[in-house]
Design a protein around this nucleic acid. Structure first.
Length: 489
RNA sequence: GGCACCGUGGCCAAGUGGUAAGGCAGAGGUCUGCAAAAUCUCCAUCACCGGUUCGACUCCGGUCGGUGCCUCCA
């Protein structure tokens, strides 16, 4: 078995071969910290968190670098609007981003470089591009990349330079040699944050940051470079142009891009999130409404390269499914604990096949949806073991235990259903209760009263309590281990 | 206009040359004091038209429909 990944550069799935065996360097473009992060960011960093985890699971020593863009036009504007120093502003949102990622169970990368810490390196890099004729300083203090000097321009996005020029708006009084040229260094206007450079005070352009931080942290050629698909052009195209012109070697061997998170419009059709339309969800908004695992599981229920429609129905479906997974694990765990002595595992090879199937799915470009499909069969099997006395209880319990252990391995790679089931289910209940006036203790009281009535076969009284709870939004479920409850949808 | 991508059951969503994973919803059965839950069973020929092939949802060409990028964007 070998891992195959879809490479945006070649537009096909390829076997993944790192430059150094078992040692992988990956760089994912991070956020610009001028505001709270949205669910599109969540999708991206969840997707590549899985990539990170899976590569490690396969035995690779992975160095994962994800930057923070902590200086750019939007930051400056926001800083001026709010009259806060830009450093303080970005610090706030870096912290918020960390909180969001932690809530989502996204592992921290190995390095999180901030571009303001690399300005001298960027200046050097730009100067070297100028020296080689790949860039030029304009009279206003800006420095531009000379796109037509770089032969491979457009190889990632599939765009041809002449097409770009056709489509480009004619910029009046542009200091650029060509409309396709992009900025490497921006001259500072009065009052803006500024750094020294041979071309005057200014700040780096967006694209140069990633080229420099990538090579400084991971070397001139890296294995994986990833980000949202909206970054393919111009950001990643420009990174390639900068880095390959500068280093004379390939910049990244594999380019991975995740799909968008869309939101429903008034007709339920997918539409792009945008602040102007007010259809924008921050990670915080969403986590207030749904459990982080629900959000994560939902995101992973579509292949990372496809767009996903962030609709309430889908989230609710995901949550329902996740509850089923956790409830099954809880029951399975209880079954094992109740069994005094564990016997022989029934069909040990079927236990191993769980992980084999998982790897087959994940080896195919991190196909989480397929992995979940296969795991459904495992949960069915657990139910079977718990409920159907086909074999001795001791053997069934042993098999259940073995499956649970295998599941834990897989859960750890996926970062889903890796929480304690009791705790997850309790968290879900408490979240659901927030919208109701009744408390968990009050419900438990009523359940005890109802049990007394039921023990006395006082069905009228029992049903009365049940109906009363239902009227308050609480749905009772009578199981072998007693009565549990959920909030009515 | 240029460049990419997509079109699988009521809905979500895998598969991509050998005759359609999984989930939600729905129908029926079991269980239950009755419910609910759980559990079991059932439920598609893959937008359309041509072509290649022994054989195509899967490859090629075309048609129709949808989306993204080309301006800041995960």
């Amino acid at each position: 078995m070998a891992l195959r990944v879809y490479n945006s550069l070649t537009r096909q799935k390829e076997e993944f071969t790192p430059i150094n065996p078992k040692k992988v360097g990956m760089y994912v473009c991070g956020v610009t910290v001028y505001d709270l992060s949205h669910i599109g960011h969540a999708r991206c960093y969840i997707a590549f968190d899985i990539v990170y985890r899976y590569l490690k699971y396969l035995g690779n020593d992975v160095t994962y670098v994800r930057n923070f863009t902590d200086i750019d036009d939007k930051i400056i504007r926001r800083s001026q609007e709010t009259e806060r120093p830009h450093g303080e502003l970005t610090e706030t949102f870096i912290q918020a981003f960390h909180e969001d990622m932690e809530a989502l169970g996204v592992l921290p990368p190995d390095e999180e470089p901030r571009c303001t810490a690399y300005i001298p390196q960027m200046v050097t890099f730009i100067q070297e591009l100028i020296d080689e004729g790949f860039a030029y300083a304009a009279e206003n203090g800006d420095v531009y990349y000379r796109v037509n000097r770089f032969e491979g321009y457009g190889k990632l996005s599939g765009k041809r330079l002449e097409d770009l020029l056709d489509g480009a708006r004619v910029e009046v009084n542009s200091v650029k040699e060509s409309p396709a040229d992009f900025v490497l260094w921006k001259a500072a206007k009065p009052g803006e944050p500024e750094w020294d450079s041979p071309w005057g005070k200014g700040r780096p352009g967006w694209h140069i940051e990633c080229s420099v931080m990538s090579s400084h942290n991971l070397g001139e050629t890296i294995d994986i470079h990833a980000g949202g698909k909206d970054l393919i052009f111009p950001h990643h195209e420009n990174e390639i142009a900068q880095s390959e012109a500068h280093n004379h070697k390939p910049f990244a061997n594999y380019w991975l891009h995740n799909g968008f998170v869309n939101v429903p419009d008034e007709h339920g059709e997918a539409t792009k999130m945008s602040k102007s339309l007010g259809n924008f969800f921050t990670i915080r908004d969403v986590l207030a409404a749904f459990h982080p695992q629900t959000v994560k599981f939902f995101m992973m229920s579509t292949h990372y390269r496809n767009d996903v429609l962030f609709a309430e129905k889908g989230l609710e479906e995901a949550e329902k499914r996740l509850i089923y997974f956790y409830e099954t694990m809880k029951k399975a765990r209880a079954f094992v604990e109740e069994t005094k002595e564990l016997g022989q595992v029934i069909q040990p090879e079927s236990i191993e096949s769980v992980e084999t199937a998982f790897r087959q799915a994940m080896d195919d470009d991190f196909n989480t949806q397929r992995a979940f499909g296969q795991l459904s069969a495992v949960f069915k099997k657990l139910n079977d073991l718990i409920n159907k006395p086909k074999a001795s209880e001791a053997n069934r319990a042993a098999t259940t235990q073995a499956l649970l252990e295998k599941l834990a391995t897989v859960a750890n790679v996926l970062g889903v259903f890796d929480l304690d089931p009791e705790r997850f289910l309790r968290d879900i209940q408490l979240r659901q209760l927030r919208d109701l006036t009744i408390t968990a203790d009050e419900i438990d009281e009523q359940i005890i009263l109802r049990k007394q009535a039921r023990d006395n076969k006082d069905w009228a009284k029992s049903d009365e309590i049940r109906d009363a709870l239902l009227a308050q939004g609480i749905l009772l479920k009578d199981g072998p281990e007693g009565t549990t409850w959920t909030v009515k949808a």
